[in-house]
Amino acid sequence: MDFTSPEFWIAIGQIIVIDILLGGDNAVVIALASRRLPQAQRQQAIFWGMFGAVALRVVLIFFALQLLRVPFLKLVGGLLLLWIGVKLLLPQEEGSGHDIDASTHLVGAIKTIILADAVMSLDNVIAIAAAAKDHVGLVVFGLLVSVPIIVWGSRFVLTLMDRFPIVIVGGAALLGWIAGDMIAHDIAIKAHVAELLPGPWTWAAPVAGALLVVVIGKIVAARRPAPVVPAEPVDLARRDGE
């Protein structure tokens, strides 16, 4: 893959979309964890939280590139991406999600943020590694793009997802696509896949991945009861009788 090949530019596009999708709300999580701190410390916690988010991505991608050469780990990474893609399509269940502890101490908040950063970086890193297909330049590009998105992107990303819900479906399909591709390229099963899917059929794995994510996501979402639409618009200012 070099600058002139279409694959290179497709990978660039994929990486940008992945970074927007998986990094855009990192800042929101950081803001959430630090919201009980006094103003000055809050700035500090947000800075170190973002620094941690970027640093962890750099460290994790280094390990990811090594580990993905181990048999079956691409398979595991691909399955993880499939799951994340499906998760993206589902409405959130009541009572789900861990509670981010909005600590009142700087150290406590930073601890929470670093922990959340680690988990949030992981999916981003695996997805970048998968889309970059071991091309180190593309990996570095993926990391560079994720920095401004983490630091400044959250409002833009939330607006984008609000205005164009299709971005979410498209993003989920993209995650499925690169997941399928990554699974097919696992060292342990690569040879069998090449035998099973000769020539142009190599496209079958990513296409199947994309379809799988969208179909499963749609089916599961349809089975969940529709959220009750209140007659009055939601008003969070009214919650504790203020």
């Binding site: 998760k87 993206l88 999600g97 861990h98 981010i100 949030m120 999916d123 609000d162």
Partner: peptide, 18 residues
């Protein structure tokens, strides 16, 4: 704006979001 991203859905309860 609603918090629509994956990380928020995975890590943060609706109560904390509110």
């Amino acid at each position: 704006l609603p918090l629509a991203g994956v990380n928020v859905k995975l890590f943060i309860s609706p109560e904390s979001q509110q």
